[in-house]
Simulated assay, not measured.
Amino acid sequence: MNRNRAAHFAAAYALFRMAADYADHWGQSDFDAQCKGATDEAPVTYKHEDTGKETVVGTKGGRAACTRHVINYTATQGIVLVVGSRLLGVRLNPAAVAGALALSGLTHYAADRRVPNGLLHRLAKASGKERFYKLADRGMNGAYCLDQSWHHSFETFAAALASLGSSTR
């Protein structure tokens, strides 16, 4: 990897990470955060903060909530990556950026659906981390930590992909 490509990867990763952290926490609606893992077998009862109205959300609503979140998440990453790279004078290959955003968005959806015995839970169980996954004590939430680790890992791959064919203006 040449120095320019390494610098472009570092810039892409920093931009991906900042955008992801914002979109996953500040940018995500409360409804989507609460309901994105809902299924008919494990429905979520969402109580609106302002009105107190309760809504029961099943599989269809859970998929919709997760899809909305991932679209917002991926769009935020795309905007930040394009604007940030232009400000830094880095010209990214549009096809590489599209591939990077697809990788980030699809893997984000796979982790965030969190259906009972979902992908992250199955991976945690297979790797001997199920107890950590289920930990919700002493200020720690294992499922959240593993979720974020999953996202950071794929953002790294996405940043490497985005930096392919990049150049400096």
Rank of each mutant, 00 (worst) to 15 (best):
G89K: 05
T45M: 06
A95E: 01
L120T: 15
A100H: 08
T51L: 08
A158K: 04
A14W: 01
Y73A: 01
E49C: 03
P94W: 13
G128A: 10
L81W: 00
A23C: 12
T74A: 12
A159C: 06
A159R: 02
S163A: 15
H152Y: 15
L106V: 14
E49N: 10
V115N: 10
H121W: 13
V56G: 05
G37E: 05
R131G: 03
K47P: 04
F31V: 01
V97L: 03
A159T: 03
V44Y: 05
T156F: 11
V97T: 07
C145R: 13
V56R: 14
G118E: 01
K134H: 13
A126K: 15
M1Q: 04
E130T: 01
D30A: 06
K36N: 08
K60F: 06
T45P: 04
T51M: 07
L88A: 12
V57R: 07
D24Y: 08
G78Q: 06
D40I: 07
R17W: 04
N141I: 09
C145K: 10
A100G: 10
N117V: 02
H152R: 13
E130H: 12
A124F: 14
D112M: 13
A159W: 05
R113E: 09
V97C: 01
K53A: 15
T55W: 08
K125V: 10
V115E: 15
L161R: 05
G27I: 10
D147R: 09
H8M: 00
V82K: 01
D137P: 01
G37P: 01
E49A: 13
A14G: 13
G99T: 07
G142Q: 09
F16I: 06
V82F: 02
G105D: 06
P94G: 10
T51Q: 10
N141W: 04
Y144R: 11
N117P: 02
S149F: 14
E130P: 00
A10N: 09
A10V: 03
R113K: 11
T55A: 05
T76G: 08
G37M: 04
R3K: 03
V70Y: 06
I79H: 04
E155S: 03
A162T: 10
A33E: 12
K129M: 15
D147W: 12
A136E: 14
K47N: 11
P116E: 05
S149E: 03
D32R: 07
L135F: 08
A136L: 12
R91Y: 04
A100W: 07
Y144P: 01
A110S: 08
G78M: 09
W150R: 01
R113D: 02
A159H: 03
Q148A: 04
V44A: 04
R131I: 07
F9D: 02
D40N: 15
V90E: 00
V56Y: 05
V70C: 14
E41C: 06
D21Y: 04
A158M: 07
H48N: 15
Y46N: 09
R68M: 09
K53E: 15
H8V: 00
A38T: 06
H108E: 12
A6L: 13
V80A: 14
L92P: 06
D30C: 02
C35G: 09
S127C: 11
R3C: 00
T39Q: 13
W26H: 10
L164R: 12
G52H: 10
T59L: 15
M18S: 12
N72A: 15
